[in-house]
């Protein structure tokens, strides 16, 4: 709503503390990814053996792990890698999914049938299973994990994009453009795409949360970065063996992932609401 005054926006936010909190969480995580040194001065890689398996305390907010590394520092330094993977995953899903949907919806005919049947098949396989298979084929590493997660999520983007393109394509203004002699590339770029993209971008923000979770799940299973590089999913996995004695090693990285997923979902919903005018 462009005509909302600053005061109205303030009121709007005041009535939605969850939304404000979500914004703060995301802002902090982004900041941690860019400048981890702002949050902690401790080394995420080298441990202090004398301080191994300490519980949470003012000097070690999230406690320490079995080699004496500060868990908080590892979570903060892991943000960059985990976020980068998530962004790559969402971009892969968005760009390739939207491109396929655009092609299928705009061209129609046999191409539409072929693309959409392939998408149906992709969607029939559970996302996590598909990404496991893909990452096994691609090889280990954070980027490959991200690509695998992206590919396993592209079906939803392709479907939504196709539906939007079909809706827009039948509009009179698209025909008017065609009738006045605009080439198909112009029709696609200036008429169909701008009017179809909105809901797809909202889906991208909603997918963010899922992608964080799936990237972490794959790195939990050990497909991600090689130790000792910190990555959220790997941190959760690392503490698994000490769950009975050092609960903080899995709990805090796990809570971080949960917080980021919830916060991105809340922001995505808010954007969705803005779009549909609620």
């Amino acid at each position: 709503m462009p005509d909302l005054s600053v005061r109205d926006t303030g009121l709007h936010l005041l009535r939605r503390p969850g939304l404000v909190l979500s914004g703060v969480v995301i802002a902090l995580v982004l900041l941690a990814a860019v400048a981890p040194a702002l949050f902690t001065g401790q080394d995420p890689i080298a441990g202090v053996p004398a301080e191994r398996l300490r519980g949470p305390s003012p000097s070690h907010l999230f406690g320490t792990d079995e080699t004496g590394r500060d868990v908080f520092a590892r979570v903060v330094h892991g943000a960059a890698l985990s976020l980068r993977a998530t962004v790559i995953a969402v971009l892969v899903a968005l760009v390739s999914g939207a491109a396929l949907g655009l092609l299928a919806g705009f061209r129609g005919g046999w191409l539409d049938s072929v693309v959409m049947r392939v998408i149906d098949v992709v969607q029939a396989v559970p996302a996590i299973l598909l990404s496991l298979a893909l990452v096994t084929a691609l090889g280990f590493g954070t980027t490959n994990v991200a690509i695998a997660v992206g590919v396993s999520n592209l079906a939803a983007f392709a479907r939504l994009m196709r539906a939007e393109v079909l809706r827009v394509r039948s509009g009179a203004f698209v025909e008017a453009a065609r009738a006045s002699g605009v080439r198909w590339s112009g029709v696609l770029g200036r008429h169909v795409l701008p009017n179809a993209l909105g809901p797809v971008l909202v889906l991208a923000t909603l997918t963010f949360g899922t992608a964080v979770l799936e990237v972490s799940a794959l790195s939990f299973l050990g497909f991600g970065a090689t130790p000792p590089t910190p990555e959220w999913g790997a941190l959760v996995a690392g503490g698994r063996g000490f769950l009975a004695t050092a609960w903080w090693m899995t709990t805090f990285p796990g809570l971080t992932v949960a917080a980021v997923v919830l916060a991105t979902n809340r922001l995505g919903r808010a954007l969705d609401g803005e779009r549909s005018g609620r």
Partner: peptide
């Protein structure tokens, strides 16, 4: 076109 509400992008 007939409907000027739909024929303009």
């Amino acid at each position: 076109h007939q409907n000027p509400y739909a024929s303009l992008n």
